[in-house]
């Protein structure tokens, strides 16, 4: 980078910092999600919440949601481009904290052919009430649809059950075979 580019880059860093502040983002990461990363992020967030005297219930809910979201990326994110560019198990992970709630947001590449099935699953989960979610969780657990990858279904159901909030999601097209899947869960700070 020449001098001009460095200045431009550093200005970008400041803009980035300001936009993180504006969106109240407390943690952001892009890359491969491993078990070590999951452990590091959850313990970091736990100690931050403890310092801020967040209630035990809220802490536990945020922990649950983070673990399930991180696991979804590590197990289900698809490959995009050549292997050394972006590979499976990668994505963006973000935690933000507002005055009323926490948001855990993930983004990862997904093959277009999987979108329909995933949308159906998410819509079904979002349409169910408390008891419906409980029945679906029990059913999926019994049917043992935990493949070698570990089913994503249970994770989504668990998030909605623990938070009491519906899942917000969005697909953005990348090219003819892939899209970017964004998922956001909110955890109320006042319960």
């Amino acid at each position: 980078m020449d001098k001009h580019n460095i200045k431009g880059f550093l200005e970008f860093v400041y803009d980035f910092y300001r936009s993180m502040k504006a969106h109240e983002i407390t943690l952001v990461y892009e890359g491969e999600i491993t078990h070590q990363i999951t452990k590091a992020f959850t313990s970091l967030t736990e100690s931050n919440m403890a310092k801020e005297d967040e209630s035990n219930t809220v802490q536990k809910k945020v922990f649950h949601v983070m673990v399930e979201c991180l696991q979804n990326i590590s197990k289900h994110a698809d490959t995009f481009g050549s292997d050394d560019y972006l590979f499976a198990g990668r994505g963006i992970f973000m935690v933000s904290k507002g005055t009323k709630d926490y948001h855990v947001t993930t983004g990862n590449v997904i093959e277009n052919r999987k979108i329909e099935e995933l949308t159906e699953m998410l819509e079904e989960i979002n349409s169910l009430d408390k008891d419906g979610l409980k029945q679906l969780y029990k059913k999926q657990m019994k049917e043992g649809r935990v493949t070698d990858k570990g089913g994503a279904g249970l994770g989504f159901i668990d998030i909605v059950r623990k938070t009491g909030n519906k899942l917000e999601y969005h697909f953005l097209p990348i090219d003819e075979t892939n899209s970017f899947f964004l998922l956001s869960s909110s955890i109320s700070r006042t319960n």
């Binding site: 399930e68 696991q71 657990m141 935990v146 249970l154 994770g155």
Partner: peptide, 9 residues
Amino acid sequence: VYFNTASSK
């Protein structure tokens, strides 16, 4: 005190 959904199965 805690188990994830993968453990629940």
